[in-house]
């Protein structure tokens, strides 16, 4: 780099750029948070959904599955599983695990009772109704 471009110029670009773009990021964040009520399905965010989210977390579902495309890539996307499979199939499937089919990927049994299964399904239904800009591309997730 040329000698006329000094270290202090570079330092000023760093501090100025960092501060400017962080403030811009904060401004976009404020706008996003204000826009979210129209998109994030909070009208259906019930106590039951909150309980379901906690079950989702304490059983580390994200360790195999993706939810809205984020997580591990070992097992199917669950952001749209409510539409793909429906509530009864989801509950029956969770109860039937593990399949024990030789060589097939296995899901543990988490010993959830019926009320907990309903909570989890309520959470997946809520998640499936978030406005995700039409992602995933098709029902297979």
């Amino acid at each position: 780099m040329s000698a006329s471009f000094t270290k202090s110029t570079a330092r000023n670009i760093f501090y100025g750029g960092a501060v400017f773009f962080f403030l811009l990021f904060l401004a976009l964040t404020v706008d996003t948070v204000q826009t979210l009520p129209k998109r994030d399905n909070r009208a259906n965010l019930t106590e039951q959904v909150a309980r379901g989210k906690k079950l989702w977390e304490v059983n580390n579902c994200i360790g195999c599955h993706t939810l809205l495309g984020e997580g591990a890539y070992f097992a199917p996307e669950l952001g749209n599983v409510y539409q793909r499979r429906g509530p009864e199939f989801i509950k029956a499937w969770i109860k039937a695990q593990p399949t024990g089919a030789p060589g097939r990927r296995q899901m543990p049994n988490f010993h959830l009772n019926d009320a907990e299964l309903d909570d989890l399904v309520a959470f997946l239904k809520y998640a499936s109704e978030i406005d995700t800009n039409k992602w995933p591309p098709n029902i297979e997730g």
Partner: peptide, 23 residues
């Protein structure tokens, strides 16, 4: 300084590439 300036100039708003499909 030039490298980390570019890091933060591009990377902070670059967080947006995670905000495409999550609501």
């Amino acid at each position: 300084y030039v490298i980390i300036a570019m890091t933060l100039i591009t990377g902070i708003i670059g967080t947006g590439h995670h905000y495409f499909w999550i609501g």
